[in-house]
C-alpha cells in the first residue's frame, strides 16, 4: 500500500508541477461548452434541452485531451520498464496512474461544471444532477481512456488513434451520463453509471497492464 501511495503521490506531483495543464483542461472544457450556443443560436429553451449532452461531450473531449500524458512520457523515458520489474504489480501502478489522472483531469472539470450549467441555462435541480453524473461517470471515462492509451502507447503517433478506439467504448457512459441529468430516468441511469464506473475501474488496470507488458516484450 505504501508503494501504491508513493506512486500516486509521484503522479500527482508530476501532473501538478506543470500547473498550466490543469488550467488548460478546464479552459478547454468551458470553451467547448460555451461555443455550442454560437453554433445553435441563443435559444434558451433549446439550450436547456441539449445542455446535458453538451456538458458530457465537453467532459469527454477534455478527458481525451489529457490521455496522451498518461503513459507516453513514462514509456519513452523507460519508467514503465522499471515499473514492470518493481515489487508493486504493474496493474497496481497503473491503477495509481489512473486515479491520479482522474484527480487532475476530472475533478477540475466537475468543479468547473457550474460555470457551464449557468451558461447553458440549466435549473438548480439539473445542476446537482450534472455534478453527480459527472462524479459517477468520469471514472469510467478515465478507465476506458487508460485502456486506449495503453494499447496505443508503443505506436509513435498513437495520440491520433487512441480517441478512435476509446469513443465507441465510451458510448454507454455518455448515454447513462446524459440520462442521469435528464429528469425522467435519473436514478436508474445513475445506478447504471456507477456500475459501469466500478466495472471499468476494476477491469482497466489489468487490461492496460497486459497491453503495456505486451508492448515491451
Amino acid at each position: 500500500m505504501n508503494a501504491f501511495a508513493a506512486m500516486l503521490g509521484r503522479e500527482l506531483r508530476l501532473a501538478l508541477r506543470g500547473g498550466g495543464d490543469v488550467l488548460t483542461l478546464v479552459l478547454f472544457f468551458v470553451i467547448v461548452g460555451a461555443i455550442v450556443p454560437f453554433a445553435v443560436g441563443p435559444d434558451k429553451a433549446l439550450l436547456e434541452r441539449i445542455a446535458p449532452g453538451i456538458v458530457w461531450i465537453a467532459a469527454f473531449l477534455a478527458m481525451l485531451l489529457g490521455l496522451d500524458r498518461l503513459f507516453r512520457p513514462d514509456y519513452e523515458d523507460g519508467t514503465l520498464t522499471l515499473l514492470r520489474h518493481a515489487d508493486l504489480p504493474l496493474s497496481a501502478a497503473i491503477a495509481a496512474k489512473v486515479i491520479a489522472h482522474w484527480l487532475v483531469s476530472a475533478v477540475p472539470l466537475i468543479l468547473a461544471s457550474p460555470v457551464l450549467t449557468v451558461l447553458l441555462a440549466m435549473e438548480g435541480d439539473a445542476f446537482w444532477r450534472t455534478v453527480l453524473s459527472l462524479l459517477l461517470g468520469t471514472p469510467a471515462l478515465a478507465a476506458f481512456g487508460a485502456i486506449g492509451a495503453a494499447v496505443t502507447v508503443s505506436i509513435r503517433r498513437g495520440g491520433l488513434i487512441a480517441p478512435i478506439l476509446i469513443a465507441p467504448l465510451s458510448i454507454p457512459v455518455l448515454i447513462f451520463g446524459v440520462g442521469a441529468i435528464t429528469a425522467t430516468q435519473s436514478s436508474a441511469a445513475l445506478l447504471f453509471l456507477a456500475a459501469l464506473s466500478l466495472m471499468a475501474a476494476a477491469l482497466a488496470p489489468f487490461a492496460a497492464a497486459l497491453a503495456i507488458s505486451s508492448a515491451e516484450d
Binding site: 494499447v151 478506439l165 454507454p172 448515454i175 447513462f176 440520462g179
Partner: peptide, 23 residues
C-alpha cells in the same frame, strides 16, 4: 498481443453497449 487485449475489452463491452443503446 496488444490488439488481443483490446479485442477482449471490446467483447466485454459490446453487450454493455447493446444494453445501454436499447435503454
Amino acid at each position: 498481443r496488444i490488439i488481443a487485449v483490446f479485442t477482449l475489452v471490446g467483447a466485454i463491452n459490446i453487450p454493455i453497449i447493446k444494453f445501454s443503446v436499447d435503454w
